[in-house]
Write a protein that binds this DNA or RNA. Structure first.
Length: 562
RNA sequence: GUCUCCGUAGCUCAGCAGGAUAGAGCAUUCGCCUCCUAAGCGAAAGGCCGCGCGUUCGAAUCGCGCCGGGGACGCCA
């Protein structure tokens, strides 16, 4: 039973309100000097026909202080409670140190499966900075759900199908000068750009491209092989980038995979009378729900992304039997998801309630926009490299003696970039600017990583320390604030999952890092008094552990030195 | 035009199952390394929480209406 329930149980008989309601009313004051918990008495004034201030005073008088609490006082209309700091400190520290890498984790999701679709890049196209939000947010959610005990399936829904591959093959056949396997993404993109340039002059190239794509569809050996190889080399290359960012997938099934799985959906929609033919296309009329129609089959007989998404959702339900299917996709597609979820509902798939469009804001350049054809692309790798280089320079300047500068620079540089989209609400648009992305001061990943390394450094220097410690010695304001922040971490992880918002975890560890740095400055951890030292070292270790766990949940690594 | 999201300090953002003086970071100004990593800590300054009405004992937080901005709106994804 936690403190809130204990308080509610104690208060209930005095004010004649059931415990459950009281639990909702009890709050944690923003100002820590006001206590650890507070009970506002406004609501009682109606039923008790008394002024809130009087009620608070009276309750303070009558209430018998429950175990674990040291003080209760009436401040105006509030009843403020103070917990036994020593006991709380001991509980928190023992738990963190005992659970270790699993602190913040739980088993609430055991036996349940969560599928997360994220990143979803296009084959033979740049892996650009604009893929960062989906990739970073999706990966963080994947890790967070896994930590909560869910079986997780990370899905990279590749854009690996469509006429652009006919164009790619056409370009390759015309201008290719080495085996397809040897082509890097940038070279493939160059072919694609050249195709569009030349097709301006010679539109017949488009016919050739269509023919090549048709061949892929028909399973023509050469066409299929070329397509397959472009796909393989793209995946091989992006896996390197993914690895840098701690990103993994369990499935790379993209659009091509669902090519043969759409017909049953189309048939079902037609047979159940859900779809109808309109202007030569097969559509589902959604005007009843104030939405434009959802196109299932285009008037030329080919399918469209909605069809593929329907097939994919059904396939995933059948294959993974998920309790949740998350789509980490930009908000531009809000309408599409609303439509496609509605169609699933009309098809009687009641599990559509478990499908969530985890949308996020737009990525843009400071002053321009991205476009593959125009060649105006910002490769994610280039951004990561720049951040790593800058980090390397900083390390050389600040820690010239550090043995493994490269790996620390990699961890911190990449972390800084990931952090930029993990620290704010998903819905916020991000405008890329080198200045912003290369600023490592303040609320950034390097700050948290630095704090982690700092705590490691203290522990390293301390060497052996006694297994037992007296947590009640951690009663100074800085220790108390730090303990509170550490104690809040598991709830932050849960909340992040519930809201599909990794920033909740990011903010939580930021708060811990901040509290630790104040603690570090105000209280000497390596105190002369060895009993005090033991307690502070335990707190330092708990900080280290929690920061590491939090960083890992976000896909960042926690170097021990930097 | 319709639908939808957003609007909090100069800038970027927290806070929004309503509660006690609205919080951070960046930028600006000023302090702090003979001691555990100064990628740090502290201080100053900076706000009709877009505007109005309503609900409430109480609204940045909930509802409605404006204003301003982003996005989407049938054969791209």
């Amino acid at each position: 039973m936690d403190s809130v329930h204990i308080l509610a149980a104690a208060l209930s008989p005095l004010c004649g309100v059931d415990e459950a309601s009281l639990c909702d009313w009890i709050e944690v004051p923003k100002n820590t000097e006001m206590g650890d918990y507070a009970f506002p008495c406004f609501r009682l004034s109606k039923t008790l026909r008394k002024a809130p201030n009087a009620i608070a005073a009276e309750l303070a008088e009558k209430l018998e202080l429950p175990a674990g609490f040291t003080k209760c006082e009436a401040v105006g209309p509030y009843l403020n409670f103070f917990t036994d700091k020593g006991a709380v400190a001991d509980t928190v520290l023992s738990r963190v140190l005992k659970e270790g890498d699993a602190y913040g984790h739980s088993t609430e999701g055991s036996g349940k499966t969560v599928c997360v679709e994220y990143s979803s890049i296009n084959i033979a196209k740049p892996f650009g900075f604009h893929h960062l939000p989906s990739t970073a947010i999706g990966n963080a959610l994947y890790r967070i759900y896994k930590a909560l005990g869910y079986h997780t399936v990370g899905i990279n829904h590749l854009g690996d199908w469509g006429t652009q591959f006919g164009k790619m093959i056409t370009a390759y056949k015309l201008w290719g000068d080495k085996p397809v396997d040897d082509y890097s993404i940038r070279e493939l993109v160059a072919l694609y750009v050249r195709f569009h340039e030349e097709a301006e002059q010679d539109p017949s190239l488009n016919d050739t491209a269509r023919a090549w794509f048709h061949k892929i569809e028909q399973g023509d050996p050469e066409a299929h092989m070329l397509w397959e190889k472009m796909k393989d080399s793209t995946i091989r290359e992006v896996k390197v980038t993914y690895k840098r960012m701690g990103v993994e997938f369990d499935s790379w099934n993209g659009e091509a995979f669902y090519e043969d799985k759409m017909q049953p959906i189309i048939d079902e929609l037609r047979d159940k009378g859900i779809s109808k033919v309109d202007q030569g296309a097969q559509i589902v009329d959604l005007s009843e729900w104030n939405m434009p129609p959802c196109i299932i089959v285009k008037s030329d007989g080919s399918t469209i992304y909605a069809t593929r998404d329907l097939a994919a959702a059904c396939y995933r339900k059948a294959t993974y039997d998920f309790t949740k299917l998350l789509y980490v996709v930009a908000y531009q597609q809000d309408l599409h998801f609303k439509q496609f979820f509605k169609v699933l509902e009309l098809m009687g798939r009641d599990w559509v309630k478990d499908c969530v469009h985890v949308n996020f804001g737009m990525v843009s350049m400071e002053g321009g926009s991205f476009s593959t054809r125009g060649g105006k692309v910002l490769y994610l790798d280039d951004v990561l490299d720049a951040a790593v280089e800058k980090t390397y320079d900083i390390i050389c300047e600040k820690s010239p003696d550090l043995a493994d500068k490269r790996s620390a620079a990699e961890a911190v540089g990449v972390g800084a970039i990931l952090w930029s989209v993990l620290y704010n609400s998903r819905i916020k648009d991000v405008t890329f600017s080198w200045d912003k992305v290369l600023n490592f001061d303040g609320e950034t990943a390097p700050y948290v990583q630095y704090t982690h390394a700092r705590s490691c450094s203290v522990l390293r220097k301390a060497g052996e320390r006694p297994a037992s410690f007296d947590a009640s010695l951690l009663n100074d304001p800085e220790s108390t604030a730090l303990l509170k922040a550490i104690a809040a971490f598991p709830e932050a992880v849960r909340s992040a999952a519930e809201k599909y918002e990794p920033y909740v975890v990011a903010r939580s560890i930021m708060q811990i890092a901040n509290a630790f740095n104040r603690f570090y400055y105000e209280q000497r951890i390596m105190a002369d008094d060895e009993v005090v030292r033991a307690a502070r070292l335990a707190l330092c270790d708990a900080t280290r552990q929690t920061l590491k766990n939090g960083l890992n949940l976000l896909g960042l690594s926690a170097p021990e030195r930097m």
